[in-house]
Design a protein around this nucleic acid. Structure first.
Length: 379
RNA sequence: GGUGGGGUACCGAAGUGGUCAACCGGGGCAGACUGUAAAUCUGUUGGCUAUGCCUUCGGACGUUCGAAUCGUCCCCCCACCA
């Protein structure tokens, strides 16, 4: 076990009696975050289509940005010269940066994996780049996020045991390098558990990381195309091996139903492109699933995106109007949908926290699933 | 009035004797999206009692085994000349 003091304080405020669900508060250099928390994705130092003020209006607490993308453009030296990521992007709340490990997976074909890191061709101009644990930590130190992630290898799905085992081996080696790398004061470091769909590898990876000692632990390597039950099994197998007093972060998930299932297993943090990307693709979220506002049925519908919603888009505009904006390609449509979807997600997370705090999480989850069933939606 | 060019599906636009219900764009309709190479991508877009049939390529008549494609006449549009 590491004897260094944690760089972020995590306090558990309530535990659900009927499950592993818990409520907590993560204290970061840029303020506290109540958990379970959903972090909208702002890969390139912006949550697409939103200003920081609009994020605040939606009650967004913490956001995520990406090491690889910001290294490629504009370069961490530009961000550092702008006073660090918070000042650069005008966001004074907590930020987490992903290490770029996921891009090893998502940009497959442009890369070559070695034991000390990954050779990339930049997806922008094709120039050769090298990203390994040292590089990722150095970049993240200059970006200055509140929480940074260890550089990991995220294998694809499906992948065989041997491949996944190698990914775990490298992920553990790289994590050790990350843990020793210098960081700015107050910057927390999370390790990432890999292991694919193999419970034994998940346990092995978790144990190895816990031995090294991190401020928090992430469950990685999920939502890479695997079936929903495989995802949940990986979450359950991993969460059970993580120290209860440290925050747990399920990377890249997801849909509301998946978030509930993971909260039930004791997961505290989430991120996903779903609310923001689907907004740009014309979909509106509700507490009973999502629908496409482009569909002809909404042509003359004067109701808001979701009845009873208090977001700016719902207070001022009809589905018919937003459908029109989307169909004619006005950027306002994308902005209003993004606002709404984030508001909807944040409201959902508030409801989750309240349910856990009040010891009625199971009922809340059951009611949510009934609502989805009634709406005919399947996640 | 003359000469030349042109009228193809919701729009634009290929096609100039059979493999054409007709390439391709746009628009329309629907679907996908999970640590964002993503305001992107995919499917579909005449009708039907649907492995086949029916009605379509300005209109009518004709040539041909067979016509969006060839001929005659007519109707519209555009350019130039009077």
């Amino acid at each position: 076990m590491s004897d260094s003091a944690p760089h972020c304080q995590f306090e558990i405020l309530a535990r659900d009696p009927g499950s592993h669900a818990r409520c907590g508060r993560l204290r970061t250099a840029h303020g506290p975050v109540d958990t379970p928390v959903f972090m909208p994705v702002g890969t390139q130092a912006a949550v697409k289509a939103m200003t920081p003020a609009e994020l605040q209006e939606a009650d967004v607490g913490m956001i995520l940005a990406n090491t690889y993308h910001l290294h490629v453009r504009p370069g961490e030296e530009i961000v550092a010269a702008g006073g660090g990521l918070h000042r650069f992007m005008g966001w004074s709340g907590p930020i987490l940066t992903d290490s770029g490990g996921f891009q090893v997976f998502s940009l497959a074909g442009l890369r070559k994996i070695r034991d000390d890191g990954v050779e990339f061709s930049s997806h922008v101009d094709g120039r050769r780049l090298f990203l390994g644990p040292r590089e990722a930590m150095a970049i993240q130190a200059r970006l200055g996020a509140d929480v940074v992630m260890a550089f990991d290898e995220c294998p694809p799905y499906p992948c065989d045991h041997e491949y996944a085992c190698n990914a775990v081996r490298r992920t553990l080696q790289w994590a050790a390098v990350c843990a020793k790398a210098p960081r700015p004061p107050g910057q927390a470091l999370f390790g990432i558990v890999q292991g694919g769909s193999y419970a034994d590898l998940r346990r092995q990876c978790a144990a190895g990381l816990v031995e090294q000692g991190f401020d928090g632990y992430a469950i990685g390597g999920v939502s890479v195309g695997e079936p929903p039950d495989v995802l949940l099994e990986a979450v359950a197998a991993t969460a059970a091996c993580l120290p209860p007093e440290r925050p747990r972060y399920l990377m890249g998930v997801g849909m509301m139903g998946q978030i509930l299932a993971a909260v039930e297993q004791g997961v505290d943090m989430f991120d996903c492109v779903m609310p923001t990307r689907l907004a740009r693709h014309g979909a509106a979220f509700t507490h009973r699933g999502h629908y496409s506002v482009r569909n002809a049925v909404w042509r003359a519908d004067q109701r808001p995106l979701e009845e009873g919603c208090g977001c700016y888009a719902c207070r001022h505009f009809s589905r018919a109007y937003i459908r029109h904006m989307v169909n004619v390609g006005e950027m306002l449509g994308v902005r209003l949908l993004t606002m709404h979807n984030l508001f909807c997600y944040m409201q959902f997370m508030r409801a989750v926290r309240a349910a856990v705090a009040e010891g009625r999480f199971r009922q809340f989850k059951a009611a949510f699933e009934d609502g989805l069933a009634a709406a005919g939606t399947v996640y």
